[in-house]
């Protein structure tokens, strides 16, 4: 999967501990439009498990998880 995905909105949650990044993603997706791509940046180790799990459970699309310098990018498509 290319890392060159252009997100419609980036949520920089690198300063937050669990469950901050996931909560920010949920709040943003709930207000967002179907078909849009959202990207969360997180340094929280729990996000690696929690964000993909929630995305799957919430029936959205986990486009990709990419390791960057010191943080992880979670790219999610709102599909419903």
């Amino acid at each position: 999967m290319s890392q060159e995905i252009i997100a419609d909105q980036v949520i920089d949650a690198r300063g937050s501990y669990c469950p901050g990044p996931l909560m920010e993603l949920i709040k943003t997706i709930r207000k967002g439009e179907v078909g849009k791509i959202y990207e969360v940046w997180s340094k929280d180790a729990g996000s690696i498990r929690d964000i993909p799990k929630w995305v799957t459970k919430a029936n959205h699309e986990m486009v990709g998880v990419f390791e960057e310098n010191g943080h992880t990018r979670f790219v999610v498509k709102k599909v419903r």
């Binding site: 300063g15 937050s16 501990y17 469950p19 901050g20 909560m23 949920i26 709040k27 709930r30």
Partner: peptide
Amino acid sequence: KEGKLVHWKELLEDLKDL
């Protein structure tokens, strides 16, 4: 103090919204 931990009141407000 640095805002890295979501305050319990804010977290409960957000959870209610979900």
